[in-house]
Amino acid sequence: MSLLPPPSEKPLNLIAFAFLLIAFLTGIASSFQQPTLSLFLSQEIHASPFMVGLFYSANAIIGILLSQLIAAYSDKQEDRRKVIMICCLLSIIGCVIFAYCRNYWILIILGTTLLGLGSASNPQSFALAREYTESAGKESVMFTTIMRTQISLAWIVGPPLSFAIALNWGFSYMYLVAGAAFLLCALATICLLPKISRNLAKTQQSGEIIEAPRTQRKSTAFLFADCLLCWMCNSMYFINMPLYLIHQLHLPEQLAGILMGTAAGLEIPVMLLAGYLTRFLSKKQLMFTALFCGGLFYIGLSVVQQTWMLIALQGLNAIFIGIIATIGMVYFQDLMPRQMGAATTLFSNTAKSSWIIGGPVAGFIAEFWHYNSVFYVSILILLVAAFCLHKVKSV
């Protein structure tokens, strides 16, 4: 007997709450792991800057390969919820390994594999949400936007709390809290998410190619490159910013968490506004706005050193990341309307792919130059991203 109640027994408000809760919980888990990883590897594992960058790259490669396989598998399954549940359970095991293991090679091979499998729970939940809104006749862009704001809401709380737990009680407690978030996510999936029948969609599209049309594959490739380069800048910022504040500017360690939390808080109104503006502006125009603000953000980081200025700059960072994280995902889904799981995971993998290049580059720059040198490199990268976005079809 299935533990999952039939969709008809679930009120619509409860279903919407479940999707928002799962987005928040996966955001909490990621906001505990990513901001503190470079500090964890540096202080607990005593890894060099280059080995820190290498860890990020290995983590990204494993995550991309596994999540893309899961995406292809999930698009063929009748019930996407089972995939989400399994991913959450694997993430719990990965968090336990990070909590108690201090061997670099075990963490980079086993720990990252489990977390890589588990990380697919986030794009899978967004793919299920898009299928739910379309089957229920709801406005998918705004629902996706509101879901994405829950991740930003989690990043308001997550980074400051993760740094506080890690610095005062230790990294073991921090990773156990992240594991608890995944456990709650699995329970919410079991009890609250609806089963979306995919047979109807398959019947309606019988005889059609479910892949992206050939005329849009080029646009999809350029959009992937654009988002990849944007996330690459953000990845290098994440890796080097905490170390830059501590070792180069000699500012308090807690400031890194405050900056990340501030940006996440400001992202929420940006995302909601961006979702609303899709009624008047194209997604391509909004993405160009994000690139412009991102360029201003990295120019500012390269020259300011005062705490209040660093906090003020997070407004530009919020516009940059808020639009890319929300409109970028919907853009992929619009270009690949018959493959929601693959499209959402492809967007998610642009962020993961960024660590493959950004990790070693950030580590190399820190090893031989200065931590803030990555900001100059990021400005050049965003110029290339603008060229790629120019080649994407407006939908």
Results as ranks from 00 to 15, higher is better:
Ala212Leu: 03
Glu211Met: 08
Ile165Thr: 07
Ile165Asn: 02
Phe222Val: 12
Tyr237Ile: 05
Cys233Val: 04
Tyr237Phe: 13
Leu223Thr: 09
Asn234Ala: 11
Ile156Phe: 10
Tyr244Asn: 10
Glu211Asp: 13
Ile209Ala: 13
Met174Cys: 14
His250Val: 15
Arg214Asp: 12
Ile239Trp: 01
Ile246Pro: 00
Phe222Asn: 09
Cys227Ser: 13
Leu249Asp: 03
Thr189Ala: 15
Gly179Ser: 01
Ile239Pro: 05
Val157Tyr: 02
Cys227Ile: 08
Ala154Lys: 00
Leu249Glu: 07
Ala221Asn: 06
Met232Asp: 04
Met236Pro: 04
Met241Ser: 09
Pro159Val: 00
Met241Ile: 06
Cys230Asp: 04
Gly170Trp: 07
Val157Arg: 00
Ala188Thr: 12
Ala181Thr: 08
Cys185Leu: 14
Ala188Leu: 08
Leu176Glu: 09
Ile239Glu: 03
Phe171His: 11
Asn240Cys: 08
Tyr237Pro: 04
Leu183Trp: 05
Ser197Cys: 13
Glu211Lys: 04
Leu153Arg: 04
Leu184Met: 14
Ala212Asp: 03
Gln205Thr: 15
Leu223Gln: 06
Trp155Pro: 03
Asn240Trp: 00
Leu200Tyr: 03
Phe163Ala: 14
Leu167Pro: 05
Ala225Thr: 07
Glu211Val: 09
Glu208Gly: 07
Phe182Ile: 00
Ser219Val: 11
Pro213Val: 00
Ser172Asp: 11
Gly170Ile: 10
Glu208Asp: 12
Leu184Gly: 08
Cys191Lys: 12
Phe224Val: 05
Ala188Gly: 11
